[in-house]
Design a protein around this nucleic acid. Sequence first.
RNA 1: UGGGGUGUGGUGCAACUGGCAGCACGUCUGACUCUGGAUCAGAAGGUUCUAGGUUCGAGUCCUAGCACCCCAGCCA
Length: 613
Amino acid sequence: MNRDASNSRIPDNEPTGNRTLSLDFIRTIVADDVRTGKWGGRVQTRFPPEPNGYLHIGHAKSICLNFGIAREFGGKCNLRFDDTNPTAEDQEYVDSIQRDVRWLGWEWDQLLFASDYFQQMHDWAVELIKKGKAYVCDLPAEEISRYRGTLTTPGRESPSRNRAIDENLDLFDRMRRGEFPDGSKTLRAKIDMTHPNMNMRDPVMYRILHATHHNTGDKWCIYPMYDWAHGLEDSIEAVTHSICTLEFEDHRPLYDWYVDAINEGRGADSKWGEPIHHPQQIEFARLELTDTMMSKRKLLELVRGGDVKGWDDPRMPTLSGMRRRGYTPEAIRNFCEMIGVAKFNSTVDFAKLEFCVRDELNRIAPRVMAVLNPIKIVIDNYAAGQVEELDAVNNPEDSSAGTRKVPFSREIYIEQDDFRETPPPKFFRLSPGKEVRLRYAYFITCTRVVKDPKTGEITELHCTYDPATRGGDAPDGRKVKATLHWVSAEKAIACEVRLYDQLILSDKRRAEAIPNREREPRDESRVHLDAPSAPHDWRSNLNPRSLEIIQQAWVEPSIRVAPAGSTYQFERLGYFCVDSDSSVGRLVFNRTVSLKDTWAKVEKKDLTFHASH
RNA sequence: UGGGGUGUGGUGCAACUGGCAGCACGUCUGACUCUGGAUCAGAAGGUUCUAGGUUCGAGUCCUAGCACCCCAGCCA
């Protein structure tokens, strides 16, 4: 376990090192506390996931916040599993969460489990009972709910509320020992059934759950509720800043109440002992992304329902999905820094995440040529059987990446999109009679189009090449408007390529996809994909075309043995990484993100222009 | 109708204790280019939720509204 002061393997100057000019509101609080010596200058944070699902990009924001703050202020950050509900949790998630936090680039100070504190929490609960601040309630769930009242009407006190302390002690002990069935009794805090804050209306502290826990096994059959447990966990760990999301804002009074209740009567000569540490809870707005659904419950539904292949399906917004998709930890960390931290409930444009991914991959990804939708070209004046090995630059952004050889031959493939028999305006790729450059190879001119006599479909193109342009430059100085990527038809290797689109489509995107569809009158710029809805409602927004598989694409032979996870730029197409489904003779690529495509934009604009005129 | 929050270009965030509203993404131009990528240069885009008030001066302070989000699990 890493006990260093350092909380990550991330170099100090990146990505948060230059955040000096304006701190977000949380870092401002932390900085003030450090400056005034509130906790003796100590900073202790924690990332507290419940192991009931895989981590997603929203968690990344919280992870980078908590670990980042610890690192920036010379503090420490723990990974603590908030594992208080055995019915939802699983060891698989405990493992995946650790993997994903590390992958993101962080290292925790301590690895902790809330379940390790169950005995301490139990003892404190007994203390509250003895102080008359907690009682065993006989009401069943529906009755508790009814007694709670509503948002606008006060609740009523439980008939069990004024039980004698000794009876409460006895009952709670028998709850613990397993004398009562699930749901038959609860331990509740005695606060105020008329409190305007619903959380303060005698909240449940413990429920009976005869369930096996992934960490404690069958040792316990009572489990603490979040509100009771969370502040105590923070207190035990001496957390200084307990950072959580906005929905816990009105739980804060309860968070404070519990710690204060334990501390009541504590002091130097008290039989209860010294006061316990009281951390400060601070809330920030969780991440929302356009066209992305980040509800753990719904993601679980997708996994269980077979809509995706698993938690690490490259379409999933999970960290494991993004990793498989080819997103890098640096890109995600950068993104998290870029979006900032505030209390406003906002939705970040997915394009921003893609920007960060491209930004990073552009720097590090080796370039390679691949043809996804091939059309064959026969170069009539190039000798059959001849093969030339041409020099290609591996990464124009990084001269140290060197060069490689790419084989050229009489028959090659180019992209279907790179040829138009009747080119539209501004199309300056290949068309009959036009000359273009084959990257790193030769200038070619299209001389003939061969079509299937029955279907009229283009089957191949015939071209001539100019031997003087070898390498890609004309000695006479003539220019071409376009440079096309290509692969040798005989030397290229076949591979599978998987193209992804958003799993869930907002109404806005749906409307774009179906132009004639009547637009919704409401503002569609912020569609809450995570909003509560009828069980099947959100599923109707599933994108049927979220995955497109190209069974036979072609890549240059230089990456025949590329290992799973390695990332390349397919020139002019995008960034692709080798999927774990790959086998020795069969490469499978995931498209991580496409390159920015100005032509596609122009073409689309022209199309919509003509369609509407 | 209770309580807790939040409102700044299309989007996400800034703006020290009042002093010319900035940055990034996106969009659009242009330059350059053996990736229609990258890079570079530039532009458009704001009634700082609204209305009053204080002030020489208000995104910032005061008052009153409006809108949106969260809360009635023995989930977290």
